[in-house]
Design a binder for these strands. Structure first.
Lengths: 235, 235
DNA sequence: CGCACAGTTGACAATAGTCAAACGATGTGG
DNA sequence: CCACATCGTTTGACTATTGTCAACTGTGCG
């Protein structure tokens, strides 16, 4: 069971297999179902839950969103993070196949599915973008399967830091928007193992950290080798 | 470190980040690059490797194909199996993002990418099919991330058996086309753990097996609960 | 018939998880 | 402005699940 969840308020479950215990939101579950465009949302808010009617498509204008799937007892797997410019929930299915929650304060632009479909049909460029995004997500999901199924904790952390560094200007100073629990649920670890592994990487001089959320890459080469599984014997 | 690799023949690597050591095929790497349509192929043959120029798209006419990604030292993650009717390598990318090998004797229909693109452009129905397949793969990849990151060995095996049962006529008598090593690399386990877990499920009376490749589901409900993570305490 | 290989099992090891305590940053109210 | 409360992070001791290694079994093919 996962704790590290701030608000203990249980949320009425909406889909079949989900039992009540353990299903919690980090937030008082104020579901985001409001006005029209580019909406400000607090950190830790549910955008939609797995199994909800897929009535809307969202664009992240600002902030970070986590996508996740849950098991009956609350075990959570984060399948990805979405950042400014990314689309959420555009798969042409009647129900969302995963939940989405903001990690930070965010701005989201919301489209009804009908409107989104119209936009996509009218704009070949937008259709192309959706297609590209989908294939990118698929490729990224396959990479993540390799990580989850076959990499050690250290290799997972190394891969994660490099992936987060990629999307930043200064690729040596990684700013992590998400907490240790989110990282853990993304990498298939526990938050304690994430902490211990990051500490070990610091001890080895591969990284340094001015604070928990700001990590400096000191030896990019060793970090890359580790991430690629070249060095399965550091620990 | 994961072993379980039968053939030690190293293969020259073809893409940038890929180091030379460790890239291995289970098979004497007879790359399938021959005549035109619906071709017969032996079990264990490489259809294409990760990083190859994505020059062809394939349709599985008969048999089973495994898609996989490798780490530098040979650790392998099978990202999926493909069966009759499925398409391989249709992502619009210049290089394959994963390798493909036959699991059984198979028949594959091969299309040059140019021809495939032409077909898709001319046939809206085919374009629609590609789109649907892609979204299905994405959804399935997300489900697999949950499995790999958060399920126990028993839960993984249970999920796998049910998934395999789904695509059969008699959903209580599962015929497994792949060996224990393939199952292990698909579920992020070792072949020994796969064996031990299947044996444990037999001992519990949840399944029975007339042979290694033919498994009978005796108690579907318990198997389903296990797969869904409802019963994290059987073992 | 026997060789080869896949599957199975068991003893042991190692990686990651659990539990618990302490630490540190952040934010609130006195 | 400080004291306190809270929440996220870190660390350590211990546990447990899964991996490793090795031997053995069973099955299919030449």
């Amino acid at each position: 069971m996962y704790t590290g969840i701030s608000t203990p308020a249980p949320e009425p479950s909406r889909f079949p297999a989900a039992p009540v215990i353990g299903y919690r939101n980090r937030q008082p579950a104020t579901p985001f179902v409001q006005a029209a465009l580019a909406e400000r949302i607090d950190a830790g808010t549910t955008v939609f839950s797995e199994g909800d009617d897929a009535g809307n498509v969202y664009e992240v204008v600002e902030g970070v969103v986590r996508l996740y799937k849950l098991l009956a007892d609350g075990r959570r797997q984060i399948t990805g993070f979405r950042f400014a410019g990314d689309l959420l929930g555009f798969a042409p299915q009647t129900h969302y196949g995963y939940g989405a929650e903001t990690v930070t304060k965010s701005k989201l632009r919301r489209f009804s599915r009908a409107r989104f479909d119209r936009l996509v049909n009218d704009e070949p460029a937008l259709a192309q973008r959706v297609l590209t995004v989908t294939f990118d997500e698929l490729r990224s999901a396959q990479e993540q399967m390799l990580l989850l199924g076959r990499k050690s904790a250290a290799e997972k952390i190394a891969s994660f830091l490099l992936k987060m560094a990629e999307r930043q200007v200064d690729t040596l100073e990684v700013r992590l928007a998400m907490g240790r629990a989110d990282i853990a649920d993304y990498l298939g670890l526990t938050k304690e193992t994430v902490c211990k592994t990051i500490s070990e990487l610091k001890r080895q001089g591969i990284i340094a950290a001015s604070s928990a959320s700001c990590i400096e890459i000191c030896d990019r080469e060793r970090l890359e080798d580790l991430a690629a599984g070249e060095n399965p014997d550091i620990f």
